[in-house]
Amino acid sequence: MERVVDITTDNLSLAVHRGFLTVTFGAEERGRIPLDDISALIVHAHGTLWSTSVFTRLSDRGIPVVICGTNHAPAAMVWPLEGHHLQGARMRAQLAASRPLAKQLWSQIIKSKIRMQGNILARNGQEAGAFDLLARKVRSGDPDNIEAQAARRYWKLLFGPNFNRDQDAPGINSLLNYGYTVLRATLSRAICAAGLHPTIGVFHANRANAFALADDLMEPYRPLVDQMVLDLVRGGETEITSETKTMLAAITTLDLPGPVGLSPLSVQTQRFVHSLARSFETGIAALELPNPPPTPANAVLDANSLLTNSPNA
């Protein structure tokens, strides 16, 4: 399985040697990872040193490098400029996509997200029937902002009436930030592999956001991170540590059902993004969206981790 490499210790040096990413502290080598095994490199630490060859060799393989701020949310990302033989044609199709097509794509994404939220709530013994009804109400482009209506109910039901989603807050919010960072990197790599441009979003169009498309496409997967964070909180973990990062990074190995059976999230995202590229090319909104993972028989009672039954975990 491809690995998310997270640099959290200050003053480490990164280099590339004979097909490996090497990590050293002074003259001491702390570890090495085959470049072909890396799905994303995330850097939280201060004083990290690296050479240009690290970026170029990772970019050659379509591996995004994510640099995080103190709140564990992405502050910058290095994304490969080329590397897909259909890139030019697909980017032109992406740019030429009509507004009605973009609205249809966005409504499919939001419906999938709301249904995934309902699935997560049902896993945890909450009444989730309203979320299926909300998903059915989503119209092209979500002009009624059903997404926000679902979110207001969802956060209170999942984490309690006193919880507020705040990207700059510590505790649960920082765990969510880190999990979403892993998702953002995973989707960014899939976008690169499909020959699309990350800045040109389906819905998000903030001029300051260079990865609007990744932010659009990660929406249906966010509730999966939410469940993992809830499991950590129930286990007494409320802060970012090396252990909680390891758990959250494992979301890329989570098995999701699809047309060809179970496959890891990292593989399912690639099919999802390729279906988006085909939609741009054909003008027909037909996305291969993620399905909820298999539910253990006792999940409603004790909210077993999503990874419990995943052979890739």
Rank of each mutant, 00 (worst) to 15 (best):
A297I: 01
L276M: 06
P292T: 02
P293W: 00
P264S: 13
F272N: 04
G283T: 01
P296T: 03
H274C: 09
T269S: 15
S275L: 12
A299P: 06
V273A: 00
P257G: 02
A297F: 05
S275D: 08
P292C: 00
Q270N: 08
V273P: 06
F272T: 05
S275V: 10
N298I: 06
L276S: 04
G283Q: 03
R278L: 06
L289R: 09
P296Q: 06
T252K: 15
F272H: 13
L265F: 00
A277V: 04
S266A: 15
L265T: 07
A277W: 11
T295H: 10
V260P: 00
H274S: 10
A285K: 13
P257H: 02
I284N: 10
R271E: 08
L289M: 12
Q270D: 13
E281R: 05
A297L: 13
T295V: 14
F272Y: 13
L265A: 06
T269G: 08
P259S: 05
P259H: 01
Q270M: 12
G258Q: 08
S279F: 02
L256F: 10
D255I: 01
A277G: 07
N298T: 13
R271N: 03
L262F: 04
L289V: 07
R278K: 05
L287V: 10
P257D: 03
L289W: 14
L254S: 07
L289I: 13
P290C: 12
S275H: 06
P264G: 11
L256M: 12
P257T: 07
E288F: 01
E288P: 03
I251M: 01
F272C: 10
Q270I: 09
E288M: 11
V273M: 00
L289Q: 12
A277E: 12
P259G: 01
G261C: 03
L256G: 15
S275A: 07
P259R: 10
T295E: 14
P257M: 04
D255N: 15
G261T: 04
R271L: 11
L262Y: 03
Q268L: 11
G261F: 03
L276F: 05
V273W: 00
L276W: 07
N291P: 04
G261W: 03
P292F: 09
I284R: 15
T282I: 02
T252F: 05
R271D: 09
T252Q: 14
A277K: 03
N291A: 12
L262M: 14
G261E: 00
F280G: 09
S275Y: 09
S275M: 10
S263G: 10
S263C: 14
Q268N: 11
A299F: 04
I251H: 02
G283H: 05
L256A: 14
P296R: 09
A286N: 14
L254A: 09
P292L: 06
E281D: 13
T253C: 14
F280T: 07
F272L: 11
P290N: 13
R271P: 02
L276I: 02
T252C: 13
A297E: 08
N291D: 06
D255A: 15
G261M: 01
P259Q: 06
H274A: 14
F280I: 04
P264N: 09
L289Y: 13
I251E: 03
V273Y: 01
S279M: 03
D255C: 15
L287N: 11
L265R: 05
T269V: 15
P264L: 08
T252P: 12
P296E: 02
P294M: 03
P293T: 01
A277N: 09
L262C: 05
P294Q: 11
T253P: 05
